[in-house]
Design a protein around this nucleic acid. Structure first.
Lengths: 231, 231
DNA sequence: CGTGAGTTTGACGCTGTTCAATACTTGTGG
DNA sequence: CCACAAGTATTGAACAGCGTCAAACTCACG
């Protein structure tokens, strides 16, 4: 898109990036393919971390390809997923000096990194960057608000239904959804267990609303019924 | 604050405002006091609407005094509260042409209104406004994200505990919280019923964590125990 | 063909919702 | 000043849905 070119021209800063296997000792960058290109493009393999909660937030990212999740871990070890990001979306731009969430690659990812201008004390320092970023920050704000509303649907089936609607919108073919993420990812995003995710999908299949071609590929048979769940 | 002066100088637009009793036929402005002042300051009485979901979003607001809730109504009549806003905070600035949520006065409110510059197609039209607003939009983004995380706490008591922590931070005296909102407001914010809110508070009182001087006034007896609920 | 991660399904218990009754608070009018 | 009404809050009992634990199944990969 032209927007990414604008940002690349206006904001870019080449940075070396590192990623690590999740829930293991951190170790250096491990790509899937060629050696790292000089410049702001980086590759991150499936399930590897991009940054951690508490890391310095001097860099933010645009996704070229793949899916990223931002998440937080509570002290009892449970994981909460804040959002999934797909191609052409931005993540990691935050108000403070540190990342408030961790970011991890759901699938193999290609990212463009941008260096953030100005600290939180002089956020208006670079007006050009601010005004370019505002629409993206607002989109993330709306996303978080809609997510919070989603989480208050009463039933698990409604939550799963709304999740499917969200991903149908991202999908090239609105009839067939290919899920990049595991049941655990879905559960941690919706605030329910993997068993309940599975049962909800089974229930929707029994009601002939969807059809599970495989565990990760879902065909929508009755879009109207699916939409009515949300109401 | 100096920020509000900056915005008033940079962005202001005088607008006549209207509010209405909630869940009744809309009727014109009904203040609590003197006639409406010319200019961007308006008064809204408790429980009256400020704008509705779907209204044109050409205006946004700063709170001088009082508490505002933004909310949405699902088709089954249930209300979901997205956020509470207090003095010095902004609300109603949105990416699209229409408000995505309704806004209502929890208590009697004094507001400053600002006219939004530029449509969504030319959001970067007014760079000065964009860069001034960015920090506020980001704060609202963070707020929504934290809210989404809050909603996934397992137990109702944890949710209520986190809610109390939030409001203790706003309170002048950190030991005593005066709730401006009803149990229904709290329940709709936390995604639980008023009965469960009440039971959770009773449970915290039995555990000697808090003390309910009256229904709306809560004294925190054991801040450490309260904080540990969240972990 | 075996292994391990991911997924599905079943049985049971707990937590929050629902429905219902009671108490408290505030404002209004006699 | 008291009585009454309406809104708000608390408490109880029964039920339903989701979480938990456990076992079986599927699939990709070596």
């Amino acid at each position: 898109m032209s927007m990414s070119k604008q940002l690349a021209a206006g904001v870019l800063g080449g940075l070396a990036h590192f990623s690590w296997p999740i829930a293991e000792a951190r170790r250096p960058f491990d790509r899937h393919g060629a050696p790292p290109r000089a410049g702001p493009v980086s590759f991150v393999a499936q399930n590897r971390g991009i940054y951690d909660e508490g890391d310095e937030a001097d860099t933010f990212f645009e996704i070229v390809a793949g899916v990223v999740r931002t998440c937080r871990f509570s002290s009892d070890g449970r994981r909460q997923i804040d959002a999934f990001y797909v191609a052409k979306e931005f993540f990691g731009f935050e108000p403070g000096a540190e990342h408030r969430l961790s970011a991890e690659a759901v699938s193999n990812c290609t990212l463009i990194s941008y260096r953030r201008r100005g600290s939180e004390k002089s956020a208006s320092h670079d007006q050009a960057q601010s005004s370019l970023l505002l629409p993206y920050v607002m989109r993330n704000m709306v996303r978080a608000q809609e997510h919070a509303l989603l989480l208050r649907c009463r039933s698990a089936v409604e939550k799963v239904g709304m999740f499917l609607m969200e991903w149908a919108a991202h999908s090239p073919n609105a009839q067939v959804i290919v899920l990049e993420m595991t049941r655990r990812d879905i559960g941690d995003y919706l605030g329910i267990t993997i068993e309940t995710v599975s049962r909800s999908l089974a229930q929707l299949e029994r009601a002939a609303v969807i059809e599970l071609s495989s565990a990760r590929e879902i065909r929508i048979r009755d879009p109207v019924a699916l939409r009515e769940l949300n109401a």
